[in-house]
Design a protein around this nucleic acid. Structure first.
Length: 980
DNA sequence: TGGGGATTT
């Protein structure tokens, strides 16, 4: 049976091989029957196609026709052939036919890829037509949502994306015997990916032929990549283009004006040329970087009084109707002002002149800021030549480059391939789940930078598609099955958990198509008015949903024609709405397969936007000022002015896109609540804990937490119990603040005792006006640290701990004088610093303070207002015994110098005087003076003594309280207080 | 107050 396989259709042959391999070369009876069935079917298909085969012919007018035999021979003798040829060579349509004539497309399909859907459809149509057929016979095409291939197909034209997606199910691409990759020079992500894949596949599929076709650029690179594959060049059927460099003059800062002048001068030159050559006015194609420049130049040209001239804008966002004007006939001259869309995607017919500004907006992805940029850049030489070629298709043309030749020569040869300019998350996820291995080892034509790859992985990590070891998660596998950007895929999966899958499906499908809203330049107001009912002030996503709901309601009631009219009236692109619906339907089917739950009740704003947020964690922003927002990664952004959300300017937003053009814009945004973020972003937020502090009321250490998302604070200062964060620090603070400093109410008996002991000693320090009695706090800290287990971090822990201590252990918790005193206490302390002043049977309480800056520094005597008059004012001058000597010394030292010098050394005189003095209600100074006079004979006048300028603590502070003990007056002037 | 162009499991 195995010998017969050569005559069998390739797909069936591969199935048989696989089954044999699975049964380790020993298939059972049932397997043999199955295989025989496949073999029959496979052989029948081959016979059927062989019978259909008619040798194709080649139109003599096409340049490629001259090389048919060379090409056929190269294909037969090589596994890979590179064919280089410019537009108009006929390669796209003729090569598949050459392959057919070479007997290919019998055992398997001839696969032929195109970068764009329209191209796939028209190419298939043209080949079928040349074979005298309609598409769907020998030639079919497949693009997303449409497949016209059948069992009879020998040629299948498709977008490169389709072929790439087939790799997932058919790792060896068994259904093909030949693959033609067309327009490989465009170097899209898909093409680069396919190239690498094919290079790996070739040794495993020796029978597979691969033909790479490209413009005449980059041919060497392709040849080298495929081990020196032969290159066949086919000339283009084009006319010569005269390239003229006309660099701009004038102000370099005003590029718009420069281009306008340059275009006007080129127009004059064209008119001169036409007059000289006696030619009718020919059409002009002007390449500009963007819509804005097109509008501004178009305004100028319309006012420039060019005769019989029509000016048409052309860019992708234009409605089909507006785009189609370039295909309509016209009289006089037509000037088409176009973006890059006319360089590759669209062919403007009948162009005789090209005016090229030499710039374009090129998408660049910045790894550093995670921002997609669209800077205006000089285009590559390849791109400039492609533009020039646009005027040599019907007759010789002239291309005016609005820059000089040196500039051209200094430009890069080729535009950077897309793979070097884009976020790779999607590519990585696809590669990993389809078993293509590590992206770092994949044979890319030009491998992307390591930073770009890391960045792609980081996004996948954010989305939960890979874990921190970069292994694909189950979620990642589900996401990979969805034909969506990974961010959108993430939203979809989570929305089924959030109960908002139905709405999210609509929104995601909507985000995958171009905005269906049309806004023609001359009807902007009418368009805005028509769109107004859809607008939602808080969420652009809801605006999308509103458009969808409107469309669906209409669709169910109206015929297709009526629906088209409604769309037109509402300024909605019917084509894009249909695309939206197609994607929605496709996604709905996949969701069903993946068993994602569709909600019946309509989703709340919150559940819907939480799902959206989950896919866009890196695109959250908070309002700074009026229009300015601070997004994650310290990016300043502005809501795109087209969004209705920019009118309300909510505090927190999430954006589907952040793109830098003239500014950094957040496009398609919605209001969110910051509390939604953290639960969805647990794996990417960073926590910062700070300011742990003891809170007496809660009897525990509290602290604060800052939560940030890629550098953006989503929670600035949240109070939290600190014990989970740093138990050691909590225990430390508990010991210091609660136990040592005493900011804590404990029921523990030893705590009360210890405090009492400490109070006594502290009071003694106040009385003696010294701070050298009590040990440093650190000693007390050490005392508790030694005794407290490591897990005692709060009052609650502490209370349940001591309750189970034994009597001995409890005693061990009590401080002793030995623990807390630095030196022995003076035994006379109590009499030197009494707690009362007793006078005529009344005890006046004394309190002490040692705080020189305080109003109460020193001794305070408390007296009830009723007893004030009886208070012995003079007796108060004598203070307490412990302070009397210091006061007397201060009094003597305060005497005028002439007097003072009689009593040197002062302390000795004072000590001698005090021998004979007894506290009484007599003035202290006079009593002291009398003693001094007795010793020296020197008389001291009463007014020579210092009074008010004595240090505060050497004068008794008097506090007067009312009946209830509330202070009503206070001061050191006893007599003054008494008289008041 | 304003965006180049494509593609799909």
């Amino acid at each position: 049976m195995m010998e017969q396989l050569d005559a069998c259709n390739q797909l069936e042959a591969a199935r048989i091989h696989k089954l044999v391999a699975r049964k380790k070369g020993r298939p059972g009876q049932k397997d043999l029957e199955k295989m025989a069935q496949w073999l029959d079917r496979g052989q029948a298909r081959v016979t059927e196609r062989q019978a259909m085969h008619k040798p194709a012919t080649f139109p003599a007018s096409l340049p490629v026709s001259e090389r048919v035999d060379d090409i056929r021979e190269a294909i037969e003798q090589n596994q890979v052939v590179i064919i280089a040829g410019e537009t108009g060579s006929g390669k796209t349509t003729q090569i598949p036919k050459i392959c057919m004539n070479s007997g290919r497309g019998i055992r398997g399909l001839i696969g032929h890829t195109q970068p764009r859907r329209i191209a796939a459809r028209t190419v298939a149509g043209r080949i079928a037509e040349e074979l005298g057929e309609q598409t769907g016979g020998q030639v079919g095409y497949q693009v997303r949502f449409t497949d016209t291939t059948s069992d009879q197909s020998r040629v299948k034209v498709m977008t490169d994306g389709i072929l790439l997606s087939e790799v997932q199910h058919d790792r060896f691409l068994d259904r093909y015997d030949t693959l033609i990759i067309d327009e490989a020079h465009e170097r899209s992500l898909n093409i680069d990916f396919l190239m690498g894949y094919l290079r790996q596949l070739l040794p495993k599929r020796p029978d597979l032929k691969v033909i790479i076709t490209s413009a005449t650029i980059e041919v060497e690179r392709f040849s080298q990549f495929f081990n020196g594959a032969p290159v066949i060049e086919v000339s283009g059927r084009t006319y010569p283009v005269d390239v003229r460099y006309r660099s701009l003059t004038g102000d370099e800062d005003d590029r718009d004006q420069g281009w306008t002048d340059g275009v006007l001068r080129a127009m004059e030159e064209i008119e001169q040329h036409e007059r000289a050559e006696k030619q009718p006015p020919g059409d002009v194609l002007v390449f500009l970087p963007g819509e804005r420049e097109i509008r501004s130049l178009s305004k100028v040209l319309r006012h420039a009084d060019l005769r019989h001239t029509e000016v048409l804008p052309l860019y992708s966002r234009l409605s089909n109707q507006e785009q189609n004007r370039i295909f309509q006939g016209h009289r006089g001259r037509r000037i088409v002002l176009s973006t890059n869309v006319a360089e590759t995607s669209l062919t403007v017919p009948g162009i005789r002149y090209v005016i090229d500004t030499g710039v374009a907006r090129i998408s660049r992805y910045s790894v550093r800021s995670k921002i997609q940029r669209l800077p205006i850049e000089p285009v590559s030489q390849a791109s400039a030549n492609q533009r020039a070629g646009r005027c040599g298709r019907v007759a010789p043309g002239i291309c005016f480059r609005l820059y000089d030749e040196t500039d051209f020569i200094n430009r890069p040869e080729y535009t950077d391939p897309e793979i070097l300019r884009t976020n790779l998350a999607s590519v990585i996820l696809q590669m990993t789940t389809s078993g293509l291995g590590d992206i770092r080892h994949f044979p890319f034509l030009e491998p992307p930078d390591r930073r770009l790859i890391n960045d792609g992985y980081k996004l996948l990590e954010e989305l939960g598609a890979v874990d921190d070891k970069r292994r694909v998660t189950n979620l990642g596998r589900t996401m990979a099955r969805l034909p969506l950007d990974p961010r959108l895929a993430r939203m979809l999966v989570i929305s089924s958990e959030q109960g908002s899958l139905a709405e999210t499906l609509v929104i995601i499908a909507g985000l995958s198509v171009q905005d269906p809203r049309e806004r023609p330049q001359d009807k902007q107001q009418a368009a805005d008015q028509a769109h107004a009912p859809f607008n939602d002030k808080e969420s652009d996503f809801l605006t999308l949903l509103n458009i969808w709901n409107f469309y669906e309601e209409q669709r169910q009631e109206l015929s297709q024609n009526q629906l088209k009219k409604v769309c037109q009236k509402s300024f909605l692109s019917w084509m894009r709405m249909r695309e939206w619906r197609d994607i929605h339907r496709q996604l709905t089917l996949i969701c069903r397969e993946q068993k994602l739950k569709l909600n019946r009740d309509s989703a709340s704003y919150e559940s819907l936007h939480k799902a959206i947020l989950a896919g866009l964690l890196g695109q959250v922003a908070v309002k700074l000022e009026k229009k300015e927002y601070l997004a994650t990664r310290n990016r300043k952004v502005m809501i795109f002015p087209g969004s209705k959300v920019s009118k309300t300017g909510p505090k927190w937003i999430v954006a589907a896109e952040i793109v830098e053009t003239s500014r950094v814009f957040a496009r398609v945004v919605a209001k969110i609540e910051p509390e939604w973020i953290e639960p969805l972003a647990g794996h990417v937020v960073k926590h910062h804990f700070f300011e742990p502090h003891w809170e007496q009321k809660r009897a525990q250490v509290m602290g604060y937490e800052k939560v940030s998302l890629y550098g953006l604070d989503i929670i600035a200062k949240r109070r939290i119990p600190y014990s989970k964060v740093d138990p050691a620090e909590c225990r430390n603070l508990f010991i210091r603040r609660a136990l040592v400093e005493g900011d804590y109410q404990s029921r523990a008996p030893f705590i009360a005792r210890n405090r009492e002991l400490l109070d006594t000693v502290e009071n003694l320090e106040r009385k003696t006006r010294r701070r050298d009695l009590l040990v440093e706090d650190e000693v007390l800290v050490a005392f508790y640290e030694q005794r407290l287990p490591a897990d005692i971090v709060s009052g609650r822990h502490f209370e349940s701990w001591w309750k189970q201590l034994s009597a001995d252990q409890l005693r061990d918790m009590e401080l002793t004088e030995a623990d807390i005193l630095q030196r022995p206490v003076d035994e006379q302390a109590d009499s030197l610093y009494p707690d009362y002043l007793e006078w005529e049977g009344v005890r006046y309480p004394l309190s002490y303070e040692f705080e020189p800056t305080s109003e109460r520094d020193g001794v305070t005597l408390q007296a009830p207002v009723m007893a004030l008059k009886q208070l012995p004012a003079r007796r108060l001058e004598w203070l307490v015994p412990g302070l009397l000597r210091e006061k007397c010394i201060a009094l003597v030292k305060g005497l005028p110098k002439a007097l003072r010098r009689n009593f040197v050394p002062v302390p000795d005189f004072v000590d001698a005087a005090l021998e004979n003095l007894q506290a009484s209600n007599e003035p202290l100074a006079l009593q002291l003076g009398e003693q001094l006079r007795r010793m020296t004979g020197v008389r001291i006048d009463a007014d020579a003594w210092p009074q008010e300028d004595l240090p505060k603590h050497l004068r008794m502070n008097l506090r007067v309280v009312d009946d209830a003990g509330k202070p009503i007056a206070e001061g050191r002037e006893t007599e003054k207080l008494q008289s008041e």
